[in-house]
């Protein structure tokens, strides 16, 4: 084992020990190819600091929060229907059990908002990757109920673990695993192929500008403020 993977393993174990043991083993137990990565648990909160409730999430509205690092954006969606669990297969032969929606209707899902194709992500300036509700289809692809990146038209299905529907992406968006507890919703880890290493590598200059340093951008979060994407992004670019 080289030094880097040793340190990574230690960190993973250290983080895992902060996670509720029962929940952790439940999600992990279902994963064959170690596609689940536990991170520090983080409560989803509203902008006023109070825990986010299910009733705060309007159906088909796009909400943004940052997890597991302060700089890694995620989308939270209430798809207003039960989203069942399913198996997701990747092109490299790996697979994982996607847990489906959470909440009373099992309609709430969350994904990393870093495009798995060429890493477009919502910045304060623009978002090229967006959710298109059923009543607002894409002008270009005419599809609705999808997450679509306008840079190269990568299309993902939020009802199916953000698996690839069409376009050039090779992998689904990574899933942010949510856990509903008495006091609210927690993000507990990332399932699937995350794009974090490419993200931090590629956007070093941008992240330094926004967060002061890459190290600061990588800091783990313990609370996630959830807000409508339009509140964070100046111009949501749809196509």
């Amino acid at each position: 084992m080289d030094r880097r993977s040793f340190i990574k393993t230690c960190t993973t174990i250290a983080v895992a020990s902060m996670v509720d043991a029962k929940v952790f083993s439940e999600v992990l137990a279902q994963q064959k190819d170690s596609m689940f990565q536990a991170y520090k648990r983080a409560l989803l909160i509203k902008e006023d600091g109070s825990p986010l409730k299910e009733s705060d999430l309007k159906p088909h509205e796009t909400y943004i929060f940052f997890y597991p690092h302060v700089a890694t954006p995620c989308y939270l969606l209430n798809l207003n229907e039960e989203i069942p669990a399913q198996d997701i297969s990747l092109k490299d032969g790996k697979s994982y059990k996607w847990p489906g929606g959470v909440g009373s209707k099992k309609s709430i899902v969350a994904y990393s908002a870093i495009c798995a194709h060429q890493w477009s992500y919502p910045t304060k300036g623009y978002s090229f990757i967006n959710y298109y509700p059923p009543d607002k289809p894409s002008d270009t692809t005419k599809k609705a109920g999808i997450i679509q990146c306008c840079a190269h038209l990568a299309l993902y299905d939020p009802k199916k673990g953000a698996s690839v529907i069409d376009g050039p992406a090779e992998a689904p968006l990574a899933t942010i695993v949510l856990q509903e507890e008495k006091d609210g919703f927690y993000a507990i880890g990332v399932l699937g192929k995350d794009q974090f290493s490419q993200f931090f590598e590629t956007y070093r200059a941008d992240l330094r500008q926004q967060y002061g340093s890459t190290a600061k951008a990588k800091e783990p979060v313990d609370k996630c403020t959830v807000m409508e994407v339009e509140k964070y992004v100046k111009e949501v670019i749809r196509c």
Binding site: C115, Q118, W119, C150, A151, H152, I237, R238, C239
Partner: peptide, 20 residues
């Protein structure tokens, strides 16, 4: 104008993929 922004992101994505 939004298509012009997508254009730039299209190119930057390719460059990220090539040299990132």
């Amino acid at each position: 104008e939004s298509t012009a922004r997508r254009y730039e992101e299209w190119a930057r994505g390719l460059w990220r993929d090539l040299f990132g």
